[in-house]
């Protein structure tokens, strides 16, 4: 379980570019929930995920993961509980390390690292098995440099890396956005499969309202650094994109900037 309580964060405080990115963001994600997050450009979605991961420190508020207050912990101390896949396929892996070395880094996420060989023989079976579930033929390319892989392949491996060891929450920030539609659909399907099979708790940012309703079991919309609505269960079933837009307008009495939300 992860809960964020009244998070506030202003970039460039005291400068003319002062920008309040989080303005009292509160959200609790329960064990096993798969939450999709939508919101227009600059709504604070990435900032929120970065705050949960520890990449940015909030000015105030509290972040609790599995009953531990992690608000002031740096990223690397949260890594045993927080797994991530980035939007940029280049960001989640090391291109000049081999596939097996990348996986070996991930299998130790948040654990002590010693002087024993990183790519242990006993890992290889597990690596091959997980890679073969991707059906990309990567199980025969363990020694290949990550940089040789396509964006979609790299994103699939990033996802695998994030799910190699247990986490309290998996953060996905538009992780299919940089891929072509077909590859994006493949990675999304893979995401659903992994989350379901491993019963992961996940928070997925997406720009597509349709996707936000199609996958997961709860949807929240952020606007100006706050949650403007949060729907799940019966209320969410059968909901369509136009209903979401209506909901947003009703909640805020605002016109939604259609350009920034892909209706597709």
């Amino acid at each position: 379980m992860i809960s964020a309580d009244d998070l506030r964060l202003t970039f460039g405080k005291g400068t003319p570019l002062e920008n309040p990115a989080l303005r009292g963001m509160s959200l609790t994600v329960n064990q096993g929930e798969f939450v999709t997050v939508i919101g227009s450009n600059g709504a604070g979605k990435s900032t929120f995920l970065n705050a949960l991961a520890g990449e940015v420190m909030v000015d105030s508020g509290q972040i609790v993961v599995d009953n531990q207050d992690v608000t002031r912990l740096p990223t690397y101390k949260r890594a045993s509980r927080v797994a991530r896949v980035f939007q940029d396929p280049l960001a989640g892996t090391c291109e000049n390390l081999s596939i097996e070395e990348n996986l070996a880094l991930a299998i130790k996420r948040g654990q002590r690292r010693g002087l024993s060989t990183a790519v242990k023989k006993q890992y290889l079976g597990q690596f091959r098995e997980s890679l073969s579930s991707l059906k990309l033929g990567l199980e025969n390319r363990l020694g290949d440099k990550m940089g040789l892989l396509s964006g979609g392949q790299r994103q699939a491996v990033s996802l695998l890396m994030a799910s190699l060891t247990p986490s309290s929450i998996l953060l996905l920030d538009e992780h299919t956005a940089a891929l072509d539609p077909k590859t994006g659909a493949f990675v999304l399907e893979l995401t659903e499969k992994i989350i379901e099979e491993q019963k992961l708790t996940a928070l997925m940012v997406t720009h597509s309202m349709k996707q936000a309703l199609d996958v997961g079991d709860r949807t929240v919309m952020l606007h100006q650094g706050q949650v403007v609505f949060d729907i799940a269960g019966k209320e969410r079933e059968g909901l369509e994109v136009k209903d979401l837009l209506g909901l947003f307008e009703k909640q805020r009495g605002l016109e939604v900037d259609d350009d920034s939300l892909l209706l597709g």
Binding site: E55, T75, V82
Partner: peptide
Amino acid sequence: RMARAQGIA
């Protein structure tokens, strides 16, 4: 950034 996310100080 990836290293930090993997828990590396």
